[in-house]
Simulated scan of single mutants.
Amino acid sequence: MVKQVAIIGGGIIGATDAFYLSFLQGNDNIQVTLFDDDTGQATKAASGIISPWLSKRRNKRWYALAKRGAELYPSLVSDAQLSNQAYQQTGTIVTRKNHDDLLALYQEAKIKEQHTTAMGRVELLDAKEVKRRMPLLTDAPEGVFVSGGARIDGGHFVSELLERAAANNLDVKNERVSLTANGAINTTAGPKHFDIVIIATGARMHESLQPLGLNVKVRPQKGQLIDLTVKMPHKWRNMPVMMPEGSSDVIPFNGGKLVIGATHENDEGFDLTPQPAARRQLLNNAKVFIKTLTDAQVSDMRVGTRAYTEDFAPFFGAVPTLPNFLIGGGLGSSGLTTGPMIGYLLAQAVFEREIDHWQDYTKPVSQYID
């Protein structure tokens, strides 16, 4: 008998989960329906950097999950045949304001390099070398280069994953749905029951699970970023991305798109209105390194809503007392790095395969649900 699986939420977790449910062995016994209406989705509004190894965060579970997520990307990109628009390994330049702090970061990176294959090559770069590798910078800082770092466009990433899955066993429904008290899904065609339901609704997970009498402890955070159009000669292709300490990421894409972001606003709820003050701040952050930028070059401003937990950590697993309900969320600002690994592990759970060491990556789901 074909197992009917529903995924509510088509962001980074839901889309990766849908792809693996269409790709892994046993997919011929699975039929997947994904429900998502895109409104405020953090993933599709985001461009980001995959480079967790030099993060200042000291949460061991988070780091283990982020490290595995970064390691997963090359095989996921290959298996799903994703384009360079979605993901490209270009290398990351990480900066520090203080030279001694940068040297300490470099030493930390060299130690990790010895046992972290996905990091690739680690180099200490002076400002002149950073400028050579990122020619669009007018005021280049010194930094640590990690060749395994990558850039990602969330919108292209999820749409390409869902397109691949839809060619096999996925049906995408562009609608917002809700749960009933008995676990059915209210759709435009009426209530429907599924064998397994995966809930990956990000900041709206609290709303999603309320009908089941569950209170998920997540809160929304508004994130805004800007796209700029810059002159990008062909010889500038495949520039690294830059993570400046205490400032906004600088993410150049081939073809003349430069992404700067993103903001972290905790008091805006689910408001998706682009704010002029955020636009000015992001542009000013970029002008620290690229003085020639002007407001006229801003071509777009994207807004999404992230989900945060009280301990700033992601969570995933089966809902207590409802084993046919799986959830994953609380990704915060690292969702593009940690989300795919969560999607992969949830897909393995659907196939009833033994999942090794989930406790290495997340606290029990019961920690995040009343």
Rank of each mutant, 00 (worst) to 15 (best):
A18L: 01
I226K: 01
N254H: 06
R151W: 02
L209H: 02
F312K: 08
K217G: 11
W358S: 14
V218S: 08
E354V: 13
D36N: 00
M243V: 08
T294Q: 07
P314Y: 03
T90C: 15
R302N: 05
L209C: 12
Y361A: 11
F19P: 06
D271C: 07
V216I: 08
V94K: 10
E160S: 04
M205W: 09
S248V: 01
I185E: 01
A45K: 03
L322K: 15
T229N: 12
R57W: 00
E71V: 12
G256S: 13
N27W: 13
V319H: 10
G332W: 04
P274M: 05
F316W: 08
S159Q: 06
S299F: 03
A203E: 09
K222Q: 03
Q4C: 00
A140H: 05
A104V: 02
Q281I: 07
A296L: 01
L179A: 10
R280L: 08
F19G: 06
Q85G: 15
V144K: 14
Q359G: 10
M119F: 06
A189S: 12
V94S: 09
P276T: 06
A150V: 06
H193D: 11
M239N: 12
I196G: 08
L34T: 02
I93V: 15
Q359H: 13
E160L: 12
V350Y: 03
S78Y: 11
A86S: 11
I93G: 14
L170S: 04
A140Y: 04
V177S: 01
K231E: 15
D153E: 11
A349Y: 05
V350F: 01
V158D: 03
T138I: 07
G343T: 00
D100R: 12
G223D: 08
A109Q: 10
N238Y: 03
D267T: 00
I290Q: 10
Q275F: 11
Q367E: 04
M242H: 02
R204I: 00
S159W: 01
K231S: 15
G9C: 09
D295V: 06
D153N: 13
I93D: 11
G69R: 01
V144P: 13
Y361R: 06
T294D: 11
D300E: 07
A42I: 09
I369S: 11
K110S: 15
I251S: 10
E163A: 13
P211H: 01
H206V: 02
M134S: 04
A307V: 09
P274Q: 05
F35T: 00
K222R: 08
Y87C: 03
G256W: 07
I260N: 03
G190N: 14
G155K: 11
N284S: 10
D311T: 01
D79M: 08
I93F: 07
G317K: 01
L82K: 07
D195Q: 06
G223T: 05
N284V: 02
D267A: 05
S147G: 03
I30C: 09
D227T: 12
G329A: 14
